[in-house]
Design a protein around this nucleic acid. Structure first.
Lengths: 100, 100
DNA sequence: ATAACATATCTAAATATTTCGATATGAGGT
DNA sequence: ACCTCATATCGAAATATTTAGATATGTTAT
């Protein structure tokens, strides 16, 4: 399997869990610290941490440390990349199609 | 968990498996029947069938029966929806951000 | 009707993801 | 230094996804 495929799945894996979509929805309204996110969810602290790691590693979310708090927000650059990746992977290649 | 979340994860689940990204890449060059896809992959027939079901149910791929063959192609409408969903889920809501 | 073929579905096993509780780390406050 | 708080990491269990082989379905050709 081509090496890029695995890299690409990371971006989409970030979005294929219901809890992570919930987190993302909260972050659409601005930067939040982990404790604030946790308040609005029905999961344990370690689970939230696990999800945040996946979101950050996908590039769609970025984190910032401030003392003992970790703040998270949606990354504009990361989202842009995710959107363009989605566009690219589903784009029909008209040149090859003619040769088919 | 909100009902829409599960619906939304379906779209992204389609894209978070390496084999399915490989299939999608082949389909970018035009409609193909299952047997043709299978030729270029290193998986069994039932596994391909499983992946195609997930891709079709996500809306990103559409299928068409022709005699004993099943042809698959990327759905323009489905891809458009997937892209707009990705855009929506990562869009920063500036109105609420001010109120934060 | 039967045989050959393409694909779908079923079942069980293999593998990956997610969850929880316990513990570790690291920052601030006393 | 010690305590407390916020978050991260670890390990095991629970759950979900993926795979392969066997079988079922439906189509075409004889």
């Amino acid at each position: 399997m081509e090496k890029l495929y695995k890299e690409h799945t990371k971006v989409f894996k970030a979005l294929c869990d219901e809890e992570r979509l919930h987190i993302l929805e909260m972050l659409r309204n601005g930067e939040k610290c982990a404790c604030k996110l946790l308040e609005n969810m029905d999961i344990g602290q370690s689970s939230l941490s696990y999800h945040m790691k996946i979101l950050v590693e996908s590039g769609i979310v970025e984190s910032r440390q401030d003392g003992k708090w970790t703040y998270y927000k949606i990354s504009k650059q990361g989202s842009k990349y995710a959107i363009s990746l989605m566009r690219e992977l589903t784009a029909i290649n008209n040149i090859s199609e003619k040769e088919n």
